[in-house]
């Protein structure tokens, strides 16, 4: 029975069926289980829609491709819709319409001419805003991070760029390049440090900071010059011993609270622990005595030797 109905529907769709075949098709539709109940009484009612109803039933039953019929139906419907574009579009619209049409046709790649239908249905007022679309898209694009999408498209995982840059930077010495760009010679830091280290005594500072040095030994002597030049002839049987001139005998008195490295257990005598009992110097010797705030005494004799 199904085959009979199917054949009748084909003939009705093609417009070659007889009235008897139409009546037979109506009877079979009412009894065929494949046809929904709501359709059994509404098809093949209007004489002008016999072919369309047959085509629709064939499509519903999976016996025919409805695409062509639908396209034709759509086109019939479109043709019956008044065109707003024709009424509202100006000369500029023709150019836009042409571009859009080409684009849509390329994209659609269909035999269906939906372009015309779409274009007809687009209100001209909306297209007047089209000029704003491009800038809006541009603006939005500026805020869109495409990197992940691009990396994904290239089959690459998103890279931890910051870490990568840091890692590379750790191996790249930019100093020379920067100095060169600035037309500067790279300072010889190491050499400078060594040179300065040779002149700078950090020991005293460190010792002072940790409190190893006694306060009495710290002050630098403020010279209290006490010239004691004396000519003492004949003492040694030579004309020679007088006080004047240069070279020296100096006595420095102070106290050191810590043992001397390399000269163990040295402790300097304080001012009260040393007494100059006698001092005789040659004629070319000058004597001066200094004393510091810490009680240290410096007896400075100079000779011209």
């Amino acid at each position: 029975m199904s085959d009979t109905l199917d054949n009748l529907l084909m003939r009705l769709k093609d417009g070659i069926a007889t009235l008897a075949e139409l009546e037979q098709a109506r009877a079979l539709v009412r009894s065929d289980e494949r046809v929904p109940d709501e359709l059994r009484d509404v098809v093949f009612v209007e004489a002008s829609e016999i072919e369309a109803d047959a085509a629709a039933l064939l499509g519903m039953l999976g016996l025919d491709d409805l695409g062509a019929m639908l396209v034709e139906a759509v086109m019939d419907e479109i043709a019956s819709v008044p065109s707003f574009v024709d009424e509202l579009a100006d000369e500029g619209w023709d150019e836009i319409a042409s571009v859009l049409r080409e684009g849509l046709e390329d994209e659609a790649s269909l035999g269906v001419d939906v372009v015309e239908a779409v274009m007809r249905r687009l209100p001209a007022a909306d297209f007047a805003r089209a000029a704003l679309v491009a800038p809006a898209i541009t603006a939005e694009a500026g805020e869109v991070d495409l990197s992940d999408a691009v990396l994904a498209g290239l089959g690459l995982a998103a890279l931890p760029l910051a870490e990568a840059v840091r890692a590379e930077a750790g191996e790249v010495d930019l100093a020379d390049a920067v100095a060169s760009t600035l037309a500067l010679e790279r300072p010889p830091v190491a050499e400078a440090v060594w040179a300065e280290a040779g002149k700078v005594d950090v020991v005293a500072g460190v010792m002072s900071t940790i409190g190893v040095w006694r306060a009495t030994a710290a002050p630098v002597v403020a010279p209290v010059v006490a010239p004691a030049n004396v000519v003492r002839g004949g003492r040694f049987g030579v004309a020679g011993f007088a006080l004047a001139a240069v070279a020296l005998l100096s006595v420095v008195v102070g106290r050191l609270a810590v043992p001397v490295t390399g000269a163990s257990d040295l402790v300097f005598a304080s001012a009260g622990e040393v007494q100059i009992d006698n001092l005789q110097v040659g004629t070319d010797v000058q004597v001066m005595q200094f004393e510091g705030d810490g009680g240290a005494v410096i007896l400075w004799l100079e000779t011209e030797v």
Binding site: V238, V246, L249, E273, D277, N278, L279, Q280, E302, V305
Partner: peptide, 21 residues
């Protein structure tokens, strides 16, 4: 002889003497 001096100091102490250029 350029210098001849006598001094008394507490034992166990160090006295620094400069003897010339």
């Amino acid at each position: 002889k350029k210098v001849d001096t006598t001094l008394t100091t507490k034992r166990g102490r160090t006295v620094v003497i400069g003897i010339g250029k």
